[in-house]
Amino acid sequence: MSGTPLMIRASGLTKRYKTVEALRGLDLEVPEGKVLALLGPNGAGKTTAVRCLTTLLQPDEGSAEVAGVDVLADPVGVRAKIGLSGQYAAVDEHLTAYENLVMIGRLYHLGKPAAQQRARDLLDRFDLTEFADRPAKTYSGGQRRRLDLAGALVAQPPVIVLDEPTTGLDVRSRQQMWEVIRDLVSGGTTLLLTTQYLEEADRLADDIVVIDHGLAIARGTADELKARTGGERIEVVIADAEDRDAAIRVLSEVTLSDVRVGDNGRELTAAAGGSGASDLLRVLQGFERETVTVLDVGLRRPTLDDVFLALTGHAAEDADSDAADAAGDETEKELAR
């Protein structure tokens, strides 16, 4: 990426709340026209990082620039360069989609005709024209998220920041959001995305930073992170918990990896080797030899839990809750209202 200007740069970002250190020296770089995903569980510090970069919070230490503008020295200038879609859709529930977008355009001083045309363009782009004259309070979660993202694009900013844009959406709505985001990036937009979903980061991001307790604990592409977590997983559900030891023995011999056992003692997971399909066949042959009855078996891609187990030794849901992010979430809910 030599020669490509950086649209987001952060160095040593630190944010403390009494005894909680939400960020502990976070460094980020996002080149123009690229997507960086901040991947981590609730409480990792993702939302705090977003708030610092978008001028909603002032870091205690460190520096940051967005589109060449210093976040601390010129916050107003930064706001003119970014579009932000937070965890909670910030739309006026009593206004229609069209009225919401026109209002945002007027706030950006576009002028009434320009704001109206921009609203119509965005409604069409986000497949919301059919609902344009309905109050936002009647929208589904996916429709509200699309409207919120459309609002972030009214001023056509060069940098978009999306804080967990698909959390809580159903599968169809999530896929629709992914399509919208891919269209934005193909048009040259620079994107910072926070997510709890490795699959989402895999599909959308050029690069991924994994965060845990305010620190970047890993960086790389999705493929690089998967390689560090052992690639595909073999998942098995056996019929009888009494066969667990035999099943673990077979999985260990084939995969040469540790075997995770579910709470009920019948769900087993192990990292596959170089060829997941070949390892799976050998496991099934071993089960037949050991007369282990299988109810379900398959290969799956690594999850966020797999990444955290490999990098930190604990699962994502075991990470301590970040009180600072929790308090910030309540603030964002109030702003969204």
Rank of each mutant, 00 (worst) to 15 (best):
S173K: 06
V161Y: 08
T167W: 05
L153A: 04
V185R: 15
Q196E: 13
R144G: 00
T166V: 12
A150C: 10
A201E: 06
L198Y: 05
V180Q: 14
G168H: 12
Y139Q: 04
Q196K: 03
V159F: 12
P165G: 11
R145G: 07
R174H: 11
M177F: 00
T166S: 15
D170K: 02
P165N: 13
E200A: 11
V154D: 00
E199R: 13
L169N: 09
L192E: 01
M177Y: 01
Q143A: 10
T167E: 06
A201K: 01
E179F: 01
L169G: 07
T138D: 00
R203G: 00
P135T: 14
L147W: 05
A155Q: 14
L192N: 02
S173W: 07
Q176Y: 00
P165Q: 12
A155F: 01
T167N: 06
G151R: 09
P158Y: 01
R144A: 07
I181P: 04
A136S: 15
A205P: 11
A155W: 00
A201T: 09
D163H: 09
V171E: 15
P165K: 12
V180R: 13
R145P: 08
D163M: 10
A152W: 02
T189R: 15
W178H: 15
Y197E: 13
V159W: 11
L198A: 12
R146T: 03
R203C: 01
E164L: 13
G168A: 09
D148Y: 03
L184A: 11
Y139F: 15
P135S: 11
T195V: 06
V154N: 01
G168L: 10
T195W: 00
I160G: 08
V161H: 02
V161E: 04
Q143T: 13
R145A: 13
D163R: 07
L149P: 00
Y139T: 05
K137C: 08
Q156T: 10
R172H: 12
M177W: 00
S140F: 13
K137Q: 14
P135W: 05
G187E: 15
P135Y: 07
L198V: 14
R145V: 00
R144L: 11
R182Q: 15
Q196C: 05
G141Q: 08
D163Q: 12
T190Y: 02
T190D: 08
D148I: 06
E164T: 11
D148E: 07
W178N: 05
Q143M: 15
G188F: 02
M177K: 08
L191V: 14
R145M: 06
A205R: 02
E179S: 14
G187I: 06
R182M: 05
E199W: 11
Q196Y: 03
R144P: 00
T167F: 03
T195N: 06
A150G: 05
T189N: 14
E200K: 03
G142Q: 10
D163F: 06
T194I: 09
Q156R: 15
E200N: 12
L147V: 04
I181L: 02
W178T: 07
L147T: 02
D183C: 04
L193C: 09
V185K: 15
E164H: 11
T189P: 05
A150P: 07
Y197Q: 14
A136V: 13
L162S: 09
A150R: 09
L193F: 04
V185H: 14
A155L: 13
S140K: 12
L184E: 04
R172C: 00
I181C: 04
R203Q: 14
P158K: 04
R174T: 04
R144W: 07
Y139N: 03
A201C: 12
